[in-house]
């Protein structure tokens, strides 16, 4: 009886881990899309009205970036610093962090003609990464769930 309860517990834990991994992957996609929206917004603000960055940051609202503390840090100390300060709360891959760092490193250093091109380039790059991640989301979610379930079954069988 005790062994059966243990096996059920192990199965539930493995299933939960699989669901959690799927959730984290989904959060990563949402964060990446939020960064893409931010870059598009910055590019539009610069292109249309040459709005200074501090004013763009102050007026920007996004629940995803607020929740992970990125926007507050962005307003306080700029993009690069915000990325490193919030790195542990961002579920992005190294490639994605690298692209975002390159974007914020170059942001605000160009002329009025060059700056929208800088934003457009990184908007396209992050957009591609977000689209790819979104495309893989359903498959990866299924994979994580299935892996969690199978692992749980396997461990339960071994225990029994």
């Amino acid at each position: 009886m005790l062994r059966l309860a243990g096996a059920a517990l192990i199965f539930a834990a493995s299933l939960a881990a699989g669901l959690c991994a799927a959730g984290m992957y989904r959060t990563r996609v949402i964060q990446l899309e939020a960064f893409h929206s931010l870059i598009v917004h910055i590019g539009r603000q610069i292109d249309s009205c040459l709005v200074p960055l501090d004013r763009i940051y102050a007026a920007y609202r996004d629940p995803v970036l607020e929740r992970c503390g990125f926007l507050a840090e962005l307003r306080r100390s700029g993009g690069e610093a915000a990325l490193s300060a919030c790195g542990y709360r961002l579920l992005l891959s190294d490639t994605e962090i690298h692209e975002l760092t390159a974007f914020f490193m170059g942001l605000g250093r160009h002329s009025a003609e060059e700056e929208p091109r800088h934003c457009a380039y990184f908007s396209a790059r992050i957009g591609e990464l977000a689209e790819k991640a979104r495309g893989e989301l359903a498959a990866k979610t299924r994979l994580c769930r299935a892996f969690g379930m199978l692992l749980g079954i396997m461990l339960a069988v071994i225990l029994l």
């Binding site: 200074p52 501090d54 250093r109 002329s111 009025a112 700056e115």
Partner: peptide, 17 residues
């Protein structure tokens, strides 16, 4: 010098073009 210019422009060189 480029970093100094960026900081003097409060991080938005394009707005001071």
């Amino acid at each position: 010098l480029a970093e100094c210019v960026t900081r003097l422009c409060h991080g938005s060189v394009y707005a001071h073009g």
